[in-house]
Every structure is written in structure tokens, then in C-alpha cells.
Amino acid sequence: MVSALMDKQTGKQAGESESKRNKESILEVNNLEIFYGEKRAVNGISMDIGKNSITALIGPSGCGKSTFLRSINRMNDLIPGARAEGEIIYEDLNILSEQINVVALRKEIGMVFQKPNPFPKSIYENITHALKFAGMKKKSKLDEIVEESLKKAALWEEVKDRLHKSALSLSGGQQQRLCIARTIAMKPTVMLLDEPSSALDPISNAKVEELIIDLKKDYSIIIVTHNMQQASRISDKTAFFLSGDLIEYEATEKIFTNPSVKKTEEYISGRFG
């Protein structure tokens, strides 16, 4: 797995020398700075992301949550002029390194976007699209994974009779669960969710939340949300961002009951943001 992420077999010593790394965490962020051109959007943050846990990122609009999230699967590479400094260590490798094979990385670190973005293909093909590319050709195996991931995403019952209909015929909430299903189908280790239920009605939202809690068993999840209730309901740890700084990062319970920084309390209680 790890070696697949490296284009060249170099620069591994750094990881090995620190093999006493905390095994509870899946990602270690060290002094991460992200720039858009000259403008700095994330100002040197450091945090450990727990394995098989849900980490919520909260903070007012424009504070750099998406920017941070998108640097973890290198989606910012698509933005001309965007650049990251510091380290994000995943399986003893620095994700930000030039030598990382981003295509392999994105198979392991999946992402679900704020707006549901299914492909204009059938429901079935939405899920098999990436599997086929990854070399899976056998129909029976594909069928199996489609069913399994749709079940995990709590969508199977609703779509099992229309798998070959267009994904665009689904409701917004169903589309978002389909997007989660197609990410699950790739069996990533980390899932990045950028406000995955902000465009959904309360019922779909509840379903997606339930689903995310359920996914914790198998995945490490980082979720951006503007919904304080959501963060407190589902996450284990919460990180509060403000204008590119990581202000406070604690167990969710602590953040919501007894935050140590005044700004956090003000934000959570809705006094600004």
C-alpha cells in the first residue's frame, strides 16, 4: 500500500526513524501552511487525526476548512497557484511530497463534496466507474460491490430496482448517498466529507448522519460542517478554525461543554460566524 503511493522509492528514512509514532492516529499534520498565490489561507496548523474516529472541522465561512481538507487528498493541485508547505504524514509518508502518486493517494483518501455530484451515468455505473478503472472487470464482483456499497450507504432498498436508470433521476439526498457509496466502493482508509449534508432536507440529513456514524467502524472520517448540532452529535474530536488558524482542537464533548478558548465558546454559542 505504502510503496504504491511513492513514484520513486526515496525519502523513506524520515518515516522510519519515527516509528514510535502514535498508532492511534491515521494522519499527522505538522505545521501545514497553504497558499493561494501570495495569499495564505492556512497558517501553520498541527494536529493528529484519529484512526476510526470522526473529526469535525468547524469555523466561520472562509476560515480555511475546505482548503485544509482538500490538501489531504491533494485536490488543491488542480488550482493554479495553490501550494502547501509543512507535512501531512500518512503511513509514514508525507502526502505533500512531490514523489507521492496522487492517483494512488486518492484511492486511499476518498472525498465527498458539499454539492452532490453524481456522474450523468446510471446509478450502477456511478459506482463501477472507478472500480473498472482500477482494473476490476468481472461482472459478478462488480455487482457484489455495487450492492454492498449501496447497502452501506443506506440506499440499496431505494434504488435496487432502478440500478440502470440515470443517477440524475435521484433526489438530492439520494444523490449524496450515492456519492458516499461510490467513495465507499473504493475501500479508502480515510474519508473527507466537506459539508456533505448541507444541501439536504432534515430527513436525508439524519440518514447521512446515521450513515457517517456507522462508517466509523471501517474508516477514519474528517467532516467539515457548519451545523453545530451535527458536529456535537457525530464527532469524537472537534477542531475550531478561525481565519486560517487552528484555535482549539479537543474532544467534542469538551469543546461543546467547556471550551478553553473564549473565541471557541463565542462561535459555538452563535455570537459570531
Binding site: M75, L78, L105, F113, N117, F119, H129, A130, F133, M186
Partner: peptide, 18 residues
Amino acid sequence: VPRDLKEASLALGITHWH
């Protein structure tokens, strides 16, 4: 073509050309 679709595909670990 909406940028969303392109990002969706790349985020699934699919190459640019594919």
C-alpha cells in the same frame, strides 16, 4: 462541463486522461 464532475472523478483516484 461542471468542475464538480471532474473533481468527483479525480477524487476517486482516476487519472486525468481517463
